[in-house]
């Protein structure tokens, strides 16, 4: 297959069981959505890894860039009060 005619790339998300969310498990090539779903079933769920699959065209994903790492994520680093564990649980509220 010539490079210019490669099948598009798809990102695959699998839900391991009911109640859990879909997790990204990898990617694959396929000519269309239906085939991508079939391929995902064959490549990523043959050891009973899942009960539901999503495939998303990789081109449709907007991702943060490593260059934006500092402005995006650095400001959260010194704000420990955003974690619930920062606060002491008041007396009498044991099962909070």
């Amino acid at each position: 297959m010539s490079a210019g005619r490669e099948w598009p790339l798809w990102e695959v998300f699998v839900r391991a069981k009911r109640g859990l969310s879909h997790n990204h498990v990898g990617s694959l090539h396929a000519p269309d959505a239906r085939t991508a779903l079939g391929n995902a079933r064959d490549v990523y769920t043959r050891r009973q890894e899942g009960v539901s699959i999503w495939v998303v065209p990789a081109a449709a994903i907007t991702a943060s860039s490593p260059d934006e790492k500092d402005p995006f994520f650095e400001p959260a680093a010194d704000k420990v009060y955003r974690h619930p564990t920062f606060y002491e649980v008041p007396e009498g509220a044991e099962h909070l």
Binding site: H29, N39, D42, V43
Partner: peptide, 12 residues
């Protein structure tokens, strides 16, 4: 097989 994905599908 013509593609890796199809290779696994046929083996399955």
């Amino acid at each position: 097989a013509p593609a890796l994905e199809e290779d696994i599908a046929l083996s399955n």
